[in-house]
Design a protein around this nucleic acid. Structure first.
Lengths: 243, 243
DNA sequence: AAAAAATACGAGCGATCGCTCGTATTCGTC
DNA sequence: GACGAATACGAGCGATCGCTCGTATTTTTT
């Protein structure tokens, strides 16, 4: 390992920023290393002073995402809240940082991708996905203790995949449409997770099933008013990770 | 257009089969045209006798998928059933062909992809996605007439994305694990869609909510027994599309 | 200020990719 | 069996890509 100077650290940040932007625009495969270097304002040779190959760039980017996401996510994971919060709120709390993050960093979805990324990137993608999935698994285990370990993991995987699947349209949309999509994501997650908590779960305070139909999950956006979106979420960009 | 001989038609089928298989193994970008040709047992030159470029191969493959899927799907879309069927059954009927199709044709997911495919393939991907989404939109409109047009479309999009998101793990798994994942997909869709029908919807006959908890949707795999998966679905391969 | 280390450059290497082209073979038609 | 059309071949072109290398500059250390 080399002793990095401040200048070098800045270059690394520049490179990762450029890579993230390019990934967002043209995808991983089409983002050439020379283009990344050019975008970062350096020569191809300089790029390889800091990364041994293209994949390592994706990996470093992935790590940066995991870190930034972890910090943003941590706030939503106060132990107590996780167990006590009504499901509806919990869902919002867990998705909000993810949404904010992806909106602030379009292109992150390339790494957070739904699992089908070009060869070589899959390796770099896994940590991001695994980090989120791990956290969700813990929450599911806490709130639906009746589930077996494999079941818990499965539920977490499905939940994460649903979130990931909705990310591109959410990021792509804006304004009211984005809010509406977020509301749909909320409904989908609540609809999926609510039944699991009904048995021995914690405070499922929001009337598990009262009326004739099981419309517990329909409280958001499906009333009279057009949207009533979940509260706007704070931006959690990662660009200035080191700057 | 050239007059195709039987031999030529066979070559086209061979090429598309090879492309589908390679896409499944290494992805679109990494599947070189020379490799496709070799896999199809022909020379690179011959390949370009039938397709002008790589993208056109993906497009033809996409069309083949749309056709095959359409036929497989049509059976599940008898007008009457769509409106009268209980949601649970409807969901199974609509997802079953998709699952069977994707299992029989791994690699189809590359084209059915969740929307984030390498540049150039996006164009070819759209028809498949749009075809499925269109059908689902019609069903949603029929069963939840209270929704506005944009809402209907949004719901259909979300539903399709959820299905697409679950496809890779379902295809990747096998046996009991696959059945369990299919059950989870079922739960997710029902949980998402059920609330929409509660108001003015059609026959939600399947005991909307009887027991103490709202576990209507959890009837599969979430009881005492390990799985009780949805009935095995007929295979709907496309390989012999023209053979 | 000299030596060492880190950073910077950019032409270009080797490999690969999508695709072409000149030519040879097979098939359909009469 | 002759002729045109369709099919088949595969070496290789031009472009691009990931990456290297020799060298020059800047920063840190001594």
């Amino acid at each position: 390992m080399v002793r990095r100077q401040a200048r070098g650290q800045q270059r690394i940040t520049d490179i990762l920023d450029a890579a993230l932007a390019l990934f967002a625009e043209v995808g991983y495969a089409a983002a050439s290393t020379n283009a990344i270097a050019a975008r970062a304002g350096i020569s191809p040779g300089s790029l390889y002073q800091f990364f041994r190959n293209k994949e390592e760039i994706a990996q470093a980017l992935s790590e940066r995402l995991v870190t930034a996401l972890g910090e943003a996510h941590a706030a939503a994971f106060a132990e107590r809240d996780v167990v006590e919060l009504p499901l509806e709120e919990l869902v919002d709390r867990m998705t909000a940082p993810l949404i904010a993050f992806n909106v602030a960093n379009p292109g992150a979805k390339v790494l957070f991708g739904s699992g089908d990324v070009p060869t070589g990137l899959a390796e770099a993608t896994r940590p991001v996905f695994a980090a989120v999935a791990g956290r969700v698994t813990a929450v599911v285990a806490a709130r639906a203790p009746a589930l077996s370990a494999p079941e818990t993991e499965r539920v977490a995987t499905v939940a994460v995949r649903i979130v990931a699947a909705m990310m591109p349209p959410i990021v792509g949309a804006s304004g009211a449409e984005r809010d509406a999509l977020i509301a749909e994501l909320h409904r989908a997650l609540v609809g999926y997770l609510a039944p699991l908590e009904s048995a021995s779960g914690p405070t499922t305070s929001a009337r598990p099933t009262s009326s004739a139909n099981g419309s517990t999950a329909a409280s958001v956006s499906r009333g009279g008013s057009p949207a009533d979106p979940p509260r706007r979420v704070p931006a959690v960009p990662v660009r200035g990770g080191r700057g």
